[in-house]
């Protein structure tokens, strides 16, 4: 049986685990303008990243963006997931496929769509101008707001699918019992659906938060040159800066921040509602 598992495990070990160890080692090396990289064991790259106000700003932007987008995605995704979970007709499978397709269409494709919608001559500005509401185009694209909307559009299908699979497993009879006993729709949601769906909510938020922290294409294409998030900053170090040790350190800071916050979030939410 091991013979069946071994090839796949070896491939993942050779192409993911090994390279990640190498990247960790490189993050402890020293950068040199002439030799690119000098073998060393120093935490200097990490200290530099934390001390530099520019990268502190990039990290803060990334965190704020990820929190806002996750919260809004949950607020928008929950009603849609509930509706999908409680569908009973043959439409349900069609709606599921429809929810899944955007998830598989690349982020670049969707950023292109947002550029067409939000650009200076885009649909929204053209409509506003046509209605005589504005004379100058509104600056919609290349703003943090554009990145937020673009990111939410990317991660919403993940949230909807995760939540709906959990809501589906809540027996409808439980809701009906609460309603029969006089609970209002909001009370049923707050006291019955929300607590029972909580494991799914946590899982969905963790997944979405990770995706938001690592936004690349949306941030690059909709954020403009002034707006910087962590994933593009990592890429820049490797492709343009050629400062590999610093880029490696940034990559691990991003990875660690994501990991610590998701573990912390899961533990906090789990404890608060565990009973």
């Amino acid at each position: 049986m091991f013979a069946l598992i071994l090839p796949a495990v070896l491939v993942v070990a050779a192409l993911l685990v090994g390279p990640m160890v190498l990247l960790a080692r490189i993050s402890l090396n020293q950068y040199s303008a002439t030799q690119l990289m000098i073998e060393a064991t120093t935490a200097q790259n990490y200290l530099n990243a934390v001390a530099d106000p520019y990268y502190r700003g990039v990290m803060l932007t990334t965190l704020v963006m990820a929190f806002i987008c996750t919260a809004l995605t949950l607020a928008l995704g929950f009603p849609a997931a509930y509706r999908l979970a409680r569908m009973e007709s043959r439409w349900k499978s069609l709606v599921t496929v429809l929810t899944l397709i955007p998830l598989l269409v690349g982020n670049v494709v969707r950023a292109a769509g947002w550029l067409g919608l939000l650009g200076n001559d885009g649909l929204i500005n053209a409509t506003l101008r046509g209605l005589g509401l504005t004379s100058e185009p509104l600056r919609l694209v290349y703003t943090p707001g554009a990145v937020a909307v673009g990111t939410i559009a990317v991660v919403l299908p993940y949230m909807i699918l995760t939540l709906s699979s959990v809501i589906e497993s809540i027996p409808r009879a439980v809701e009906e019992a609460a309603a029969n006993l006089g609970a209002s729709a909001f009370t049923v949601f707050r006291r019955v659906v929300w607590p029972l769906a909580l494991p799914g909510t946590v899982a969905g938020c963790v997944l979405v938060f990770i995706l938001c922290m690592n936004t690349y294409a949306t941030a690059v294409l909709l954020g403009g040159s002034q707006f910087k998030m962590m994933a593009p900053a990592v890429y820049d170090q490797f492709s343009k800066g050629m400062n590999w040790p610093f880029g490696a350190a940034l990559a691990f800071i991003l990875l660690a921040a994501t990991l610590v916050l998701t573990v912390l979030g899961t533990a906090l939410l789990g404890r608060r509602y565990a009973r």
Binding site: L22, Y235, L255
Partner: peptide, 17 residues
């Protein structure tokens, strides 16, 4: 794990490798 590690981080690691 390849689905859990951010693709940009995994890509940087592969690049160095």
């Amino acid at each position: 794990a390849p689905l859990a590690v951010p693709a940009i981080v995994a890509g940087s690691a592969l690049y160095m490798f």
